[in-house]
Design a binder for these strands. Structure first.
Length: 820
RNA sequence: GCCGGUGUGGCGGAACGGUAUACGCGGCAGUCUCAAAAACUGCUCCCUCCACAGGGUUGUGGGUUCGAAUCCCACCACCGGCACCA
């Protein structure tokens, strides 16, 4: 028994060791050596003024949490860095900066929990991120450009942007409902409210009416939407932005209210169904409700209003009451009842709708619940009329007066025109996008730079007086009144009006963290101590950003805000482009055994452990090998072992004593050039997994030989250097190649030779098989070349048809050859 | 409901309309070793078969094509975004 237990213990220890086995070479010595050398040489510091081929490679800067960088951040950054290194090898002057998004409610909440001042906590976290983690992962960061959003030299310009927007009428103060957590006694950002409950304590969030600052992003709704077409961004992100902006085109028109000197204005996207209107619905808080509700109906209507608070999105729309009043249909002149119901929202459109139960599922449900009329006016073309459901598609109009018999589109056009001519309606576009609420009644953010003067109202702080510094408070806890903690500091609040000099009070709210990150990419390339937010010349040189890589979770917030700020700054003459990122790619998500990584699941992966055990190169290569970069992948300790073996194999293969100067034979040459071609294409498409797989395959072949040529080693190390910068540099040096692997030019495919080889192959096969294949035409050399290269250019030159013929022949020949 | 995406071995995943399952993990066998670890070599989609060989297989059902994981149509499942949005 004791022996069995001992054996078991030994096996476990061995299994443990096996799992943790890193590469055989001494990565712990190699990494600091090259890190230092790159730093000394300024390898990753492009000349921002004079670079000839500026390539701005941006990744989303992290929020420096106390937990440290997690594996998801590392995955994002490394993938972006591989792209940057590849572009650099291709001759671009790559600028790859990094910084810290350190303001915000997350930092503040954590500081409160720990009882540490946010400033102290942030400083500590930033240092840890930068020095202990980010510098280890092997990215080509240019640390001289680092930004920290909590630095007054940075947020001075965040405030400056606000002032510019204010002066342009794009920032305004108005009363709005905010999320209030009664338990934490604090205002919450929208994104901290999960299904109506506080993200932190789970309490039901209340709505409070407070005066708030808004940025008028809705002024840009149309442009934010239209510009998407010209942006080379991940499709899913563009789709998410389109959804978020939510454009709908339709008709807005008025109906007279019978017996009252009033009109109901409604919005519809289906003017073609106007003859199907059987009632009109007002939102419970619609201003007309009080005026037109008949005395006898007052209690019922008030009841709807009271019950309207918690709206369940999936519930059938049934809560509602008749006002006792009728509207006049503008085309038929008939009376239709006006109802109040909570399925119509005041916040969208006009807060009132024309209800067409035959052609809208919600209207139909409501009509059934209250026994209201249903009138079908559109029949589907060719299909049977669905018995019990609303037909919400287009079709042919019936029972629609002079419009009967027309198609939906044409009828809609004519009806809109008629109501426009009658002066009671007009074509209208509505958006779901809302204005951006930036006020936060919190401490850890840049103060809103506004002074309230009894005579002059809200006055922006003069630009030369910026920044309005965030005072160093002892008591920075949120108050229970909904006022910012800054409001408790008389020395901060008390000031004078910039216009008249009379005593005045400062705004005490701070600005949303998303404003900090909406312009950081403009700051990186510019001198950080200059008297301007960004230097116009450098900005022209480097922006817009050539490639931006980050998480899809920022599809609608950060990416929309950054676009908005860029557009506004462009329109105000501060930038000469209006889109910040010409290319954006969303990376995938890392999972552990298929689960999302989360604190509650307890499956947090600390990258430090893997950097310690396996080294940066192996971790980088493994992360990139897990799956297509844009799809993400599943992290496992087992899987990393394969990459360890690969790195060891490369190490052994590239030892100087194994390198010979001989010329490689034709097959070896072809394989090398196929490898170059595939790795190049795959990296360009962010298919890092297949790029690495190709390198593994080639390495296996090379390793089966006694010796390798210098050309092959040089090529292998260069192709691998974006994934494994440290070890490739070390091997490069040991092989006595001039320069460094990470600065070596990217190998070129000898496409002519490659094509020649394939042509030879086809001719050989064709010669053997000619009598056995009924080929429609013979493959020419050019066609075969097209197949070999897969190049769009060559294809276009040769033409699709002949390429197809050529591929057919090749396919058949290959089949026959293998059948032999 | 609308929009975007994904479905391929035991697992992660490969396949510009042309040998499906590259590369890696895991598994099995072997070499080396007193033994193990490490490393290396071979095998490993499923079914029938001692073997030879044959048949089947890319979520489901159709279609286009000499040829379909790939293109088209319909559906199913899962993931993400939007949503009583008129």
């Amino acid at each position: 028994m004791a022996k069995a237990r001992r054996d078991k213990a030994r096996d476990d220890a061995q299994a443990q060791q096996a799992r943790k086995r890193g590469p055989h070479f001494d990565f712990a010595a190699i990494e600091p050596k090259w890190r230092e050398r790159w730093e000394t040489k300024g390898t990753y510091h492009p000349d921002l003024k004079r670079a000839k081929r500026p390539y701005y490679n941006l990744m989303m800067f992290p929020y420096p949490s106390a937990a440290g960088l997690h594996i998801g951040n590392v995955y994002a950054f490394i993938g972006s860095d591989v792209h940057g290194r590849w572009m650099s090898a291709r001759g671009e002057d790559v600028f790859e900066p990094m910084g810290f998004d350190a303001f915000g409610i997350h930092s503040e909440n954590f500081a409160i929990k720990q009882g540490v001042h946010p400033a102290a906590l942030t400083a500590k976290n930033v240092a840890h991120f930068r020095d202990q983690q980010l510098k280890r992962i092997g990215n080509r960061f240019d640390w001289s450009a680092e930004v920290d959003t909590t630095d007054p030299a940075y947020y001075r310009w965040t405030q400056w942007i606000f002032v510019k927007l204010f002066k342009a009428g794009l920032a305004e103060r108005r009363s709005a409902a905010v999320n209030w957590c009664p338990n934490d006694k604090t205002v919450l950002a929208d994104e901290q409210v999960i299904d109506g409950h506080c993200e932190r304590c789970g309490a039901l969030v209340e709505r409070r009416q407070l005066d708030q600052w808004f940025l008028k992003i809705t002024d840009y709704a149309e442009r934010l939407l239209a510009n998407l077409d010209s942006l080379d961004w991940s499709n899913r992100v563009k789709a998410a932005q389109r959804n978020w902006i939510g454009r709908s085109e339709g008709l807005e028109f008025s109906l007279a209210v019978a017996g009252h000197d009033a009109e109901v204005r409604v919005f519809t996207t289906r003017p073609d169904t106007i003859y199907g209107v059987t009632f009109v619905v007002l939102a419970p808080d619609h201003p007309l409700v009080d005026r037109i509700t008949a005395e006898a109906q007052r209690d019922a209507v008030t009841g709807v209003r009271a019950a309207a608070e918690p709206v369940e999105p999936d519930a059938t729309p049934t809560a509602g009451a008749f006002t006792g009043t009728y509207a006049i249909h503008p085309l038929t002149g008939k009376r239709v009842p006006i109802w109040v119901a909570d399925y119509v929202l005041m916040g969208y459109g006009t807060g009132a709708i024309m209800a067409v139960p035959a052609h809208d599922t919600r209207d139909l449900a409501f009509a059934r619940a209250h026994h209201l009329g249903v009138r079908q006016v559109v029949v589907p073309d060719g299909e049977a009329v669905p018995a019990d459901e609303a037909w919400t598609g287009a079709g042919t109009l019936v029972s629609s007066g002079e419009y009967s018999g027309l198609g939906s589109d044409e009828a809609a056009e004519r009806i809109i025109t008629r109501l426009e001519e009658a002066g009671i309606g007009k074509r209208k576009v509505h958006y779901h996008l809302r204005d951006w609420l930036i006020s936060r009644q919190r401490y850890w953010g840049p103060p809103v730079p506004i002074i309230y003067c009894p005579d002059h109202g809200a006055v922006p702080v003069p630009e030369e007086d910026l920044p309005v510094r965030l005072p160093d408070l002892e008591d920075y806890l949120p108050t229970s009144t909904g006022d910012s903690p800054l409001s408790k500091i008389p020395g901060f609040v008390a000031t004078t009006c910039p216009i008249c000099g009379k005593p005045a009070g400062r705004e005490t709210d701070v600005m949303d963290n998303f404003l900090d990150s909406a312009w950081y990419f403009l700051r990186y390339p510019s001198s950080h101590d200059s008297e301007q937010a960004w230097d116009p010349e450098t900005t022209r040189h480097w922006l817009p950003v050539k490639m931006y890589i980050g998480g899809a979770e920022h599809s609608v917030l950060h990416l929309m805000y950054a676009r908005f700020i860029t557009m506004a700054m462009h329109d105000l003459g501060h930038l000469d482009f209006d889109e910040p990122f010409t290319h954006f790619r969303a990376h995938g998500i890392i999972t552990i055994n298929g689960d999302k990584i989360s604190k509650s699941k307890g499956n947090i992966i600390n990258p430090d452990d893997y950097l310690d055990d396996y080294g940066a190169d192996t971790l980088r290569a493994y992360l990139m090998f897990m799956g297509p970069y844009e799809a993400g992948g599943d992290f496992s300790d087992r899987g990393i072992g394969g990459v360890v073996r690969f790195m060891d194999r490369v190490w052994r293969l590239c030892q100087p004593q194994r390198i010979v100067t001989a010329k490689p034979d034709r097959d070896a040459r072809r394989q090398m050039h196929e490898t170059i071609g595939r790795v190049d294409t795959d990296i360009g498409e962010l298919k890092y997994n297949t790029a690495i797989a190709t390198l593994m395959g080639w390495t296996n072949t090379l390793d089966a030989r006694k010796s390798v040529t210098a050309d092959e080693v040089r090529t292998l190390l260069t192709l691998l250097s974006p994934f494994a910068p440290f070890v490739t540099c070390e091997l490069w040096e040991r092989a006595s190649f001039p320069g460094m692997a990470v600065t070596a030019p990217w190998p070129q495919v000898d496409s002519a030779a490659l094509a020649r080889d394939v042509v030879t192959l086809i001719v050989q096969v064709d010669g053997r098989m000619r009598d056995r294949v009924e080929a429609p035409s013979a493959a020419t050399e050019a066609e075969a070349r097209a197949i070999a290269l897969g190049s769009a250019k060559v294809r276009a030159a040769v033409g699709q048809r002949t390429v197809r013929d050529a591929k057919y022949i090749v396919g058949r020949l290959i089949n026959l050859v293998t059948e032999e």
